[in-house]
Each structure stands twice: as C-alpha cells, then as structure tokens.
Design a protein around this nucleic acid. Structure first.
Length: 799
DNA sequence: CGCATCTCTC
C-alpha cells in the first residue's frame, strides 16, 4: 500500500527549498541509512554515530553558497580551516602530474607507516571539530563550482579519512557526489563512489546526481544495483528520474510502467510531489488512462494536484482524441478556483484540433480571449492547424495575419504545420510554395520545418527531393537530429530502398547521432519486411544494450512482421513477452495479429485472436472487423464475412470504404461479385448508406466519377476490381465517352493505363498518393509509372 | 513544445 501524506490542505505539499534534492534526501535518508547500514553486517563501520540534529539545519542557502572559506566561514566557527586548506592545496599542486596515483594512495592508506610531524600536528588541531562543521566546510567548497575548490573538497575528505577525524564518511562522500553532480562532473562522482562500498546515502546521492544531469541510464542502473544490495530506493530518486525523463522528452510508456511497478512492489512512500510527477509522467508518455486513474485515486484522498499536472493530463487526453474527459478536467480546474492560463487552454484546444472539432476550437479561443488570456504562438499554430486540416487555407491565412497583428511573430513551426497538412493530403508540390511564403514573411526554416519537408517528399516517394532537402539543410548549418534521420531512413524503407536505408542508419551513427527507440522500430520493420530474422534479433539486442526498452510500437512491429511472414509462434511470443514486461497489448497490436491471420485466410485463428482481444477488454474497432471480414473472405466464407457486416451494424460501428471494398473482394473470391453488381441493389444500397452513392451510381449509370473528393481512391479501386473481373471494356467505354480517351490495343488491358489516363491534368495531385502507393507496392506492375507521372507533373524546384 | 516508427481494402 502506498502511504499518502496527511491531507491537511487541498494542495499537494510542495517543498520549496534552495536545494530540494539535498534537503529532501537528508530528511528522509538519514533515518533510513542509519537502520539500513546497521543491518548490513559487512559494513566497515560498526555503527553510525548519532546524527546531530543541528546538521539538518545546515542548508545550502543562497548566502552560504556565496560564502568563501577564508572569511565569514572561519569567523562563524571557532576553527580556522585556512592552514589545512593551504596545506592541502600545496600538496595537490606539488604532484599534479601524478594526481591519480596520489589520490589513490591517500585513500587506500588508512594507517600510514610514517607521518610528517607537522601534518600530524595539523590533524591534532582539528581533532575537536564537530562533524557538522566539516560538512558545511565541504558544502562551501563544493558550492563554488570551481574545479580547484572541488578538488580541494575531495582532498579534505581523503585527509579526514586518513586521520580518522570525522566518522560519517558516507555523508561526506554524498556531499561530494552531490556537488560533483551539480557541476556536471558525473564521471568524477563515479570514480568517487567506487572508493567505498555504496551505502543508501551514497547511492541516493549518485542516483540523484545522475538524474539531474540527465544520465538516466546510469540512474536506473544504480537503482537496480541498489535494490540488489538490499536497499530500498529513496522516493525522491523516483521524482528526480521521472522529472528528468520528462524534461529530456525521453519518457515513454514502458519506462513509466516499469518505474511505477517498482514503486508499488517496494511499497515506496509516495509524497505529493512524486504523485504529481507520476501522473504527469504517464500523461507525457501518452498513457492518459493510467494518468486519469491515478489522478482519481489521488483526488479521492482529498488532495488536488498541481496545475501543471492537470494540464499534462488534459493534453494527453486531447492527444488521444478523448476531448470529453479533457473538457471535464478543464472544468474541474475552473471549479477548483484555478483560472486556466494559456497552457491549459492550449491543451484543450489541441484536443479539439486533433478531434477535428473546428467549432469547439474556435469557441475555446474566443472564450480564452474573453477571459483576458492572450493567445500565444502555440494557440495560433493550433488554430492554423485546424483550418489547414479542414482545407480552409483562407482562414488559416487570416489567422496568420491576426498573429502578426497581435505581435506574435509567425515562426517556422506555423509553416511546418501548414506544410504537414498539405503533406497529409498528398500535395507535396506545395512544399516549395510554403517555403517561398515563409521566406517572404521573413521566417527562416528551422530543423523542424526541414524535417517535415523531408517527410513530405519521402512520403510522396520523391526521394531525390528528400535528399536534396537534407543537403540543403546541412548547407544552411542545421544539424540533423534523430527525427531527421528517422524520417530519411523510413522514407527509404517505404520506397523499398532497404540497402540505402541501412546505409543511412550507419551514417546516422557515424555522425554521432544515437539511434532512439523509433529508429530501431523503423529498422526492425525494414529487416522484418526483408525476412532477415537474425538481424531483427540483433537490433533488438542492440537497442536493449543501449538502455532502450522495446515499446508498444516495437512489439506491434514484431507481431506484424512475424505474423505477415506466417511465423505465428514468434508473433504470439512477442505478445506474451510484452505482457510480461507489464505493458497492456494495444488494439493496434491485436489488429496486426488478426490481419496477419486474415491475409493468409486463417479465419478461425483470426476469429480467435479477435476473441482474445475482446477478453482483454478492448473494444473492437472497424479496423479489426474489416480484417475479420478479410479473413473470412480469403477463406471463401462469404456468409460469415457478411455476418461481420451485420455485427458492425448492430454494434454501432460504421462500416467504411474498406469494409465494402473487402466485401467486394470476398464476393470476387467466391465468384458472386458480378451477380451482386448486376442483379442486386443490395450492394448499391449498402454503398449509398455509407456515403458512397456517387461511386455506385457513377459506375452503374455510365458516368465518369467526379473528381476532387476524398473517395477518389475508392473509385479507382472499383475500376481495378472491375477490370479483374472482366468489366474493363465497360469502363473503357465510360471513360472514352466522357473524356475522349483514345485507347490502343497495347494498353487497353492495362490497369495502369486506366488509372493514368483517367487523370485530368488539372487535378493530378489528387491521385498522387494512390498512384505512388501502387508503384511502391507493386514495382513490377507499375515500373514505368514514374515516367508517366513526370509528364503530368510540372517540374518545380528550389528557387 | 512540435516533426519521425506499428494495424484494414489496392
């Protein structure tokens, strides 16, 4: 069970001290270390001296930080440390050529055979100095941030140990480790920690130092070592680690679940701060459910979390489209008397934008303005995003103007959102226009913009443009980051250039950019598609050896690639491994599994996977059901396929284009498609109900489908299916009548011809994603597609 | 801050 702080106030107790790490450690670690150390039989010290209560009051306040040992420090105590420091400074400088050997000898010799009489004298004069004064001397030295002072501090500790002057060496070491950690001298801190067996105090100091310096791998490693040594980690360490993960954006769901499991299984006391950190951590890791669950738990005890925590949860909910819950927390915040600020509004706005709720987005912004909260660049960006996604470019442009009018300079991010929205509509050619517009507004493209631009070209199979953009970015002195490399690598994979992708993966590492989990996921996917299983395993090992945990996408990718290759045992094993790692299987993962069975016509297994998914408490998605239809279709079980359609209707799941397309394919499999198409209006009826009236009536009514809407792909696919079942001649007639297409005997049976020739030159771009997808997926069938396309597309280039 | 990776029909 977790222990909660006494709910005295409605707010989490927040500890605000000059040096929270140090102070909190001291409060909680001392009693712990005293008992824990006493329990360790092989401890070098029989027992720890009682900790003087006065020592807890020695804080690194801002005044003591500024204090120097020569002046007021000496005046504050009856002891003058001047002679000692001079002595140590001299002995340090006398042998700086062999610094390492001198320091190792000074620490290893506990009882020197011969002693300089003057040094002995010096030691004697400090015999009566109480420990807290040594501590504060060390803190003063360490606070100076000068490396020579820290060296001196270290020499003091060694010297004290040598002369047996201060008992609690572990405390001295921990002070040093803290200081070293603060001045980013982690390596030295490590060397120091190896001089003695680690105690809870030094462990905590070291873990804290690592976490604060962002060296999470070491921090986590130390935590597990600490546990192996039989100590319980300080809860402050968890706070520090989670905060550090959040700061560095390295937070993800496996690491959060791992940490949370540890906290639970070790009955770590959770204070208000840690609760805030955990909740915000889960939120930032994209686990809104877990965040909401913990939030409710905490609130049930009468505590209310910090605003930042609530904003993080709102943001996470918004990100996953759970706008209603996001709204609820936003309202809760208001009712709790907290006036939401820009960040909170932005978090909710983000939810509306993600969910495509343009009206709500507009309304929350005006509410915001009414409440006197001024929109910031993020607000405007989100609004522009919303309009761009709705295809309302004019409105987006107006927001841009508003932005300038409100003295919020449009930045590169705004333009990269606009570009991303063009990308998602397949309009990659707009890249150049956006770039021009941005420059005319006096905004320089940054790395983020170039990343989106590379992705836009990459996703449109324009690898040359993608690489040219990359080069251009380099020539402008912008260094590629992991996202840049991941984008480049992935677009080469997607275009089937696996060798080039692998080269880029190497280049990335040679350039000093460390691959992240996403990089590994991309590469694992690539090797999996090539069925290079040994390499897949190799990458998994490599990523873990670098301290990267496989995440949900990693496992899904594995299930997908193993499943698609028919290696179902391996796929299931991945699912099990993931479960045992404490992660909940995602709907996506089950979809991948169901799909794998479906594509091989293993309908019973697909159905079984579907049932397991339901048993796991996951709602069936249209995607899963479409796969199930496909499973029955491929297994020639058309009756069952249609019963899935029935199931969807009864369970309020809207059949979509894919549903009907898959059903069409099912009918083709069992040679019933023509019958349906010609004789029955049922099928047409189904289409009409799902909003595909135009398609059906167009084909049936001998009219060319209308272009310019989102279902164009669907029409093209119908043409393709029609051709496969021998209706091509009919379609050619339709096309000829309406578009004056001349056909030759050579290409009249070619689907490619149909596809390309039905493209009116004015609206080429609508067809691009589809055509490029086809040419990527079936290079042999569509090898010359590129030539056809390049004739149709105006060539545009950088300036 | 954001941008990148996995799942359905061709």
């Amino acid at each position: 069970m977790m222990l909660l702080p006494v709910p005295g106030s409605t707010c989490f107790p927040s500890i605000q001290l000059a040096s929270p790490t140090l102070i909190r450690h001291h409060h909680h670690v001392w009693p712990l270390s005293a008992t824990a150390a006493a329990a360790v039989t092989n401890s070098s010290e029989p027992h720890l001296p009682p900790i003087p209560s006065s020592s807890t009051t020695i804080h690194l306040t801002s005044t003591s930080r500024r204090r120097r040992f020569g002046d007021d420090q000496a005046a504050a105590s009856p002891y003058d440390f001047g002679p000692l420091l001079t002595f140590l400074a001299n002995s340090l400088s006398s042998d700086d050529d062999s610094a390492s050997s001198s320091s190792s000898s000074s620490s290893s010799t506990s009882s020197p055979t011969s002693l300089d009489p003057s040094e002995f004298q010096l030691a004697q004069s400090y015999r009566a100095v109480p420990a807290p004064l040594w501590h504060s001397l060390l803190k003063s030295l360490c606070a100076s941030h000068s490396s020579s002072d820290i060296g001196l501090a270290y020499a003091v500790v060694s010297w004290l140990q040598k002369h047996n002057l201060c008992f609690s060496y572990e405390l001295l070491y921990s002070i040093l480790i803290h200081a070293l950690g603060r001045s980013e001298k982690l390596y030295e801190a490590f060397l120091l920690s190896q001089r003695q067996s680690l105690t809870p105090l030094t462990y905590n100091a070291l873990i804290g130092a690592c976490a604060r310096n962002g060296d999470l791998e070491k921090a986590l490693h130390l935590m597990s070592r600490m546990r192996q040594d039989g100590y319980r980690s300080d809860f402050v360490n968890y706070s520090l680690i989670i905060q550090s993960l959040t700061r560095s954006n390295k937070i993800d769901s496996p690491i959060m679940f791992k940490l949370y499991r540890e906290i639970e299984s070790e009955s770590i006391e959770i204070d208000g701060q840690l609760f805030n950190d955990i909740i915000a951590g889960f939120a930032k890791a994209g686990e809104p459910s877990q965040a909401v669950h913990l939030l409710a738990m905490v609130q049930a005890t009468g505590l209310s979390p910090k605003t930042a925590t609530l904003v993080a949860v709102i943001s996470a909910l918004g990100n996953s489209g759970r706008v209603v819950e996001a709204e609820a927390i936003f309202e809760e915040m208001r009712e709790g008397g907290l006036q939401p600020r820009t960040r909170a509004y932005n978090a909710l706005l983000k939810g509306y934008v993600k969910a495509g709720q343009l009206k709500d987005a507009e309304s929350i912004v005006s509410q915001m303005e009414k409440s006197g909260i001024s929109p910031d660049e993020h607000t405007y960006s989100l609004l522009i995003d919303a309009y761009a996604n709705a295809g309302r470019w004019e409105s987006a442009r107006i927001v841009l103007k508003e932005m300038e009018a409100s003295n919020v300079q449009p930045n590169s991010y705004v333009f990269s959102r606009i570009l991303a929205s063009y990308r998602d509509r397949g309009e990659w050619q707009k890249s150049f226009q956006v770039l021009r517009e941005m420059k005319s507004s006096g905004v320089r493209p940054d790395r983020h913009f170039y990343n989106v631009m590379i992705d836009t070209f990459g996703k449109s199979n324009c690898l040359d443009h993608a690489m040219a953009t990359f080069e251009r970015m380099l020539s402008e002195g912008i260094h590629p980051d992991t996202v840049t490399w991941n984008t480049l690598i992935d677009c080469h994979c997607k275009s089937g250039h696996h060798v080039r992708a692998e080269e880029l993966f190497e280049e990335m590492q040679q350039s000093g950019c460390a691959p992240c989990a996403t990089t590994y996921n991309i590469m694992i996917n690539s090797f999996g598609e090539q069925q290079r299983w040994d390499e897949v395993k190799g990458l998994l090992g490599k990523m873990q050896s670098q301290g990267l945990l496989p995440n949900i996408v990693t496992y899904t990718t594995l299930v997908d690639i193993y499943g698609k290759s028919g290696r179902f045992t391996d796929a299931i094993e991945c699912l099990e491994v993931m479960k045992s790692a404490g992660m909940k299987p995602s709907p996506t993962m089950y979809n991948a599994l169901i799909n794998a069975y479906a594509q091989r016509g293993l309908s019973e297994q697909a159905l079984n996977a579907f049932r397991v998914m339901r048993a796991d408490g996951l709602k069936p998605s249209p995607l899963a059901l479409n796969s199930l239809i496909n499973a029955f279709g491929e297994d020639r079980r058309d009756t069952e396929a249609f019963s899935v359609l029935q199931y969807m209707k009864e369970n309020d799941l809207k059949p979509d284009v894919v549903t009907y397309t898959t059903l069409m394919k099912t009918l083709i499999r069992v040679d019933k498609f023509c019958k349906h198409l010609r004789q029955s209006d049922d099928f047409a009826g189904m289409m009409i109900r799902t909003g595909h009236r135009a398609r059906v009536s167009n084909i049936k009514g001998n009219r060319v489908p209308e272009y310019g809407n989102n279902d164009t792909e669907y029409t093209l696919y119908q043409i393709a299916i029609a051709e496969t079942i021998g209706l091509a001649h009919l379609l050619f007639e339709i096309l000829e009548q309406n578009m004056n297409i001349n056909r030759t005997d050579d290409n009249k049976k070619s689907l490619k011809y149909v596809l390309i020739s039905c493209i009116p030159s004015s609206s080429t771009s609508i067809f691009f994603p589809y055509l490029l997808l086809l040419s990527t997926k079936y290079p042999s069938r569509y090898s010359s597609m590129d030539t056809h396309l390049s004739n149709k597309v105006g060539t545009e280039d950088f300036e």
